[in-house]
Amino acid sequence: MTEQAPSSSQVKVKRDIGRLIAHGLASKLTFDQACMRAALFNEIYLHGTIDEIVISNISTADLWVRPGYAQPQLQDAPGARKKTGRSRELDFFIIPAADRTGRSLAMEVKWTPSRHCSWGNVVFDLYRLKLIAMSEATTDCMLVLSGPRDGVTKLRDRVRAESQKRAIDRVCEPGLVLRSTGSKTGSGGHCASR
């Protein structure tokens, strides 16, 4: 018996894509660490693995995956003094294909051992995701934190502590969902989704 696709052109990303990314990413990093490839780990390495997981779990006829997507809401307002350099980009933006309608998914990715993964940059990404969620009612947002468990736990604890002082709770409503996987010295995958 074969499963038939819905007759409408309404499409959506799997509800459990965050769980699939967290488990798949942690498993892949643990495997690669066992194969002595830990020196290769960085945010770009994570992008390749996440791209594989997402592409394997969506219909590419219904949804398009846009890595490094220059989201219009993140750019300077028309008439404002333009910033120089590259456009502001999301790590991933998954959108319905041209002839489809449905929910989109904006995703930012951080590798905790990176110098780029500072507290300020994580907060900046959370606010960028919140801006997108507020401006596009049909877009869900996800922050993926990955790295050695100690680094991710420390960052997660700081998010929780700072959320008492700032509006971060409103960024992460209905709650920050973090899953802990990986070894103490190895790689862990954590996904936060709205």
Rank of each mutant, 00 (worst) to 15 (best):
V123Q: 06
D157G: 10
K12T: 05
P6F: 06
R149N: 03
I50R: 01
I44R: 08
E43F: 11
V152P: 02
D169T: 08
R100P: 14
Q10D: 08
W111A: 05
E3R: 09
I17K: 02
V123M: 05
G85R: 12
S146R: 03
T30F: 15
R170C: 00
D62V: 11
K14E: 02
K82M: 11
G151K: 13
A34Q: 15
I94N: 02
M107P: 06
Y127K: 04
V171C: 09
L178T: 00
S59Q: 07
A106L: 10
P6S: 02
T153R: 02
V144M: 07
R158H: 02
W119H: 12
K110S: 07
R15Q: 03
K14Y: 07
R128N: 04
V152S: 03
Y127N: 02
L126A: 08
V177L: 05
P113I: 13
R179K: 05
Y69A: 01
S8A: 08
I58V: 01
T112K: 15
P78V: 09
Y45W: 12
P174W: 00
A26W: 13
V54G: 00
L20E: 10
E173Y: 03
G175S: 01
T181F: 14
I95W: 07
L46Y: 03
L40K: 07
E43W: 12
S163C: 13
A34G: 11
R115K: 13
V177S: 03
V144A: 07
Q71E: 14
E89C: 06
Q33I: 15
D51Q: 05
S104L: 00
G68L: 10
V54L: 01
A161C: 11
A167L: 06
E3D: 01
G68V: 10
D32F: 15
L178I: 11
A5V: 14
S9V: 14
E52G: 01
G186V: 13
E136S: 01
A192S: 11
S187D: 04
R160G: 05
A133V: 08
P72N: 07
L129V: 06
S180L: 15
D125H: 07
G151A: 05
A98H: 14
Q10S: 08
I95C: 05
R100I: 12
N42H: 10
G188W: 15
S183W: 15
G188L: 15
A34H: 14
V65M: 08
T30V: 14
M1Y: 11
S193V: 09
R115A: 14
T185V: 12
Y127W: 07
K12F: 02
T84V: 09
G188Q: 14
R88Y: 06
S146N: 10
V54S: 01
M1G: 13
W119Q: 09
Q75C: 02
Q71S: 08
T153G: 00
S8T: 12
A61F: 12
V171S: 02
L29W: 15
S118P: 12
D76N: 06
I53W: 08
A5Y: 12
L131D: 04
S163K: 15
R88K: 10
K165V: 06
R166K: 04
R103D: 00
I21G: 01
L46Q: 03
P6C: 00
L145N: 04
V13F: 00
K12I: 07
T139I: 06
R158N: 04
V65H: 03
Y45K: 04
G18A: 01
D99N: 13
L143E: 09
S9A: 11
R179Q: 08
K165F: 15
S146T: 11
D140A: 01
L155F: 12
D140Q: 05
L178D: 00
F93R: 09
G18T: 05
